[in-house]
Design a protein around this nucleic acid. Structure first.
Length: 279
RNA sequence: AGUAUUGGCUC
């Protein structure tokens, strides 16, 4: 049972949802963990209806099941459904509160996020990071700064969240300052500061940052690809696309819009027909 | 614990 749950999730990780489903259906028995793994798989794939069907078939959904649902609605931007799920939960824990808080943050409902944050019986670093993200996401950098100063503890995520806030404000100077001030860097923070520079049209600097990065992943490559596309350098974008070790949906979308920006509808439609359903 | 909640690219 443990082995098949692991296998189910391994397929899901690689986007092979159909295989995950087959594993689930062929399981010798099911416990709440394998049910929840199936839920999480559909949640991650954005297959809300299938997820709901699985949930409805569960003999005994637990807190994990409920919060998986809640998070799935949040992810899809259906904040009302997330709140309804929260209200329907037989018990609550910190994860449930955090999930609701994050749902409001993702939905840009800062007031609801704030009142949830005040109302929750306890808060951990995830709660603080979530309210910080809610402020940063809608460009309230002043409020984000207040939260950041008030936080009892900060981690790399807190710092990167601030970085994202300034990036979205197109405040490159502040973004670079935060980046230099943070105690550590990782792949995500490096990619974020790269994106900040790329968005502001600093092509050379961005290329340099990219080359200097200790590690790169598909997102870092995508940032560069998107940057060239937005500056009508479709040939450069195409080169990046060829050079990158693997592609995500975002890579395809970015190259597609690179062609569209240049008005190259022929290349765009050709590329479109080459897009895999799952890459 | 084999499952759920917070940060980066496109949508």
């Amino acid at each position: 049972l443990v082995a098949s749950t692991t296998m189910l999730l391994a397929y899901a990780q690689n986007g092979h949802i159909e295989e995950s489903k087959k594993v689930f259906e062929g399981m010798p028995g099911r416990d709440v963990i394998s049910w929840n793994a199936m839920l999480a798989t559909f949640s991650g794939a954005g297959s809300l209806e299938e997820m709901e069907r699985v949930f409805a078939g569960m003999p005994e959904p637990d807190l994990v099941s409920w919060t998986t649902l809640l998070a799935a609605y949040a992810q899809s931007g259906i904040t009302i459904a997330a709140k309804k799920t929260f209200d329907a939960m037989p018990q609550l824990n910190l994860v449930a509160w955090n999930s609701l808080l994050s749902a409001y943050g993702k939905g840009g409902q800062i007031e609801n996020a704030r009142s949830t944050f005040e109302e929750m019986p306890e808060r951990d670093l995830i709660s603080w990071n979530s309210i910080l993200g809610a402020c940063a996401q809608i460009g309230h950098t002043k409020e984000a700064n207040v939260v950041f100063a008030e936080m009892p503890r900060r981690d790399l995520i807190s710092w990167t969240t601030m970085l994202v806030g300034y990036t979205q404000q197109e405040n490159l100077a502040a973004a670079n300052r935060v980046f230099q001030k943070m105690p550590q860097h990782d792949l995500v923070s490096c990619t974020t500061v790269l994106a900040a520079n790329a968005r502001n049209g600093h092509l050379e600097k961005s290329k340099h940052l990219f080359d200097q990065m200790p590690q790169r992943d598909v997102v870092s490559w995508n940032v560069l690809l998107t940057m060239y596309g937005e500056h009508e350098l479709a040939d450069e974008a195409k080169k990046i696309f060829k050079d990158m070790p693997y592609h995500s949906l975002a890579s395809w979308n970015s190259l597609l819009s690179a062609h569209l920006v240049e008005g190259d509808f022929y290349s765009a439609s050709q590329l479109f027909s080459q897009m895999p359903l799952k890459d």
